[in-house]
Design a protein around this nucleic acid. Structure first.
Lengths: 195, 195
DNA sequence: CTAGTTTTGTATCGATCGGTAAGGAACTGG
DNA sequence: CCAGTTCCTTACCGATCGATACAAAACTAG
């Protein structure tokens, strides 16, 4: 019975374009005109396919964590806490300094919301960040190679703080090589060879 | 010969109000209406006294680094690198979790600019950040208590990365007590008691 | 009081913001 | 062909953006 005119664009590809723009300019910094121009569709098509700007951003956020940000959950599978931390921090450097993606982290950028109207988006991003850190903490609680007297909760917060700092540094223009040196030093001091 | 109608507001107090709003909502997230409402003046008075929105922000930025952010330069006067790092990181925690100021850091927030029209502001903030880190590096180059094989440049970048991360965490709602634990762990690992 | 100067309040500018109404275009089922 | 459904295009909505024109108000110098 149904049918209808087929859509003339690829929704997945359009979401990738939207991700690129949101990643580079943030939620409030991206206008609908920029979105439609980048996605190659016009405004009513965007609203019909993705709801409104906020819903589109949430969909893009899912896509971000599912594919470029997947390293964060994959790192939890490493056998030792030492390797979990290493893969998390090095993954953050790779993610935020990719040669074909905007520098910085979509999630971290969106924490610095801006106007009061984008507070729902801000809260959603913060909730996802907290969930990721909680997973990291649970992983540390089950680790056997933590330094003596090391609180898994505080360690998770510290690692999260370092990855956040890496994202800010990348957004400030720091190169991948420089951040690799920073990451190496952080790992060297966090898990020092047994003395 | 001159004279003219005296202004009915205190420029310094108005700048403090503007700082509070920019700090909380960022450059692009703050509208002129919010600024004039917070500053208690109307629009033409703002333009006559402070130029335009961008010039006002730069003036506010000066004020920010001169007073709430002064700890960053004062920390350089500490006698040892260990204490410079400690005062820098603890100062970042205090600054970004103040009970009477917005959470987070005005400078870090402004790195995640937003739209393309605010790029000059973004570049200015980045330049100031790089200058601060360069001062930190020069201080480390003159220190005698650096761990063996520790590159002053990388150490400065790492400390800067940690303070950036602290700012993001504070903006995400982390409490001062939690960040103090994170800072303590970072300091413990960075400068470990000689083994 | 008058002339000159600066700030104030009001009202508004063009541009852009996110979001939509309305109708023609392209498809599927009969 | 025709009805039914969905999408695309154009044009537009009220609200808000940063920034200003204009004139009345408040001051100093003479």
């Amino acid at each position: 019975m149904p049918g209808g005119r087929p859509r003339a664009f690829d929704a997945e590809a359009a979401l990738d374009r939207a991700l690129e723009v949101f990643w580079r300019q943030g939620y409030e910094g991206t206008s609908l005109s920029e979105l439609t121009a980048a996605m190659g569709i016009n405004r009513p098509s965007l609203y019909a396919a993705f709801g409104n700007k906020e819903q589109l951003f949430r969909t893009v956020l899912d896509r971000y964590f599912a594919s470029p940000g997947a390293f964060a959950v994959e790192a939890l599978e490493a056998p030792t806490a030492r390797e979990v931390v290493e893969r998390t921090i090095l993954g953050a450097v790779e993610l935020t300094t990719g040669p074909h993606t905007p520098h910085g982290c979509l999630s971290v950028n969106s924490v610095h919301a801006c106007g009061p109207d984008s507070d729902p988006v801000r809260q959603e991003v913060i909730a996802r960040r907290m969930a990721g850190e909680a997973a990291l903490r649970r992983r540390f609680e089950q680790a056997a190679d933590l330094p003596a007297g090391c609180d898994p909760r505080v360690l998770a917060q510290l690692v999260h703080t370092v990855t956040d700092g890496i994202a800010v540094q990348a957004a400030s223009g720091r190169t991948r090589e420089q951040l690799h040196q920073v990451a190496a030093m952080a790992l060297r001091t966090l898990f020092r060879p047994p003395s």
